[in-house]
Amino acid sequence: MGNNKEQLLRDIGIVDFVLTELTLYLDTHPFDRNAMEYFNHYNRIKHQMEKEFSMKYFPLNTSMAESNKEWRWGMAPLPWEGVCG
């Protein structure tokens, strides 16, 4: 999955969508073991992908924003500008 910036960001959005759906589902089905297995599986994948993206391009959240020369979080693109902007 993901060999460039836009593709990897899109893939993160897809995996995160799975997690959003599972979170809401589990809120009302808190004993569904299959759903919990799915959640755990995709949650691990999402963490790996976010880490990869944040190291290669820009930090997606402040927990991945450790910086040396410049404040990477502050220099990251603004999501509402889109890629056509």
Binding site: L9, R10, I12, G13, D16, F17, T20, F58, P59, L60, N61, T62, S63, W73, A76, P77, L78, P79, W80, G82, V83, C84
Partner: peptide, 15 residues
């Protein structure tokens, strides 16, 4: 809360 620096679904409007 904490912020994720991406949209939940992409918005890329040309015109």
């Amino acid at each position: 809360w904490s912020y994720e620096r991406r949209l939940q679904f992409p918005v890329n409007i040309k015109e």
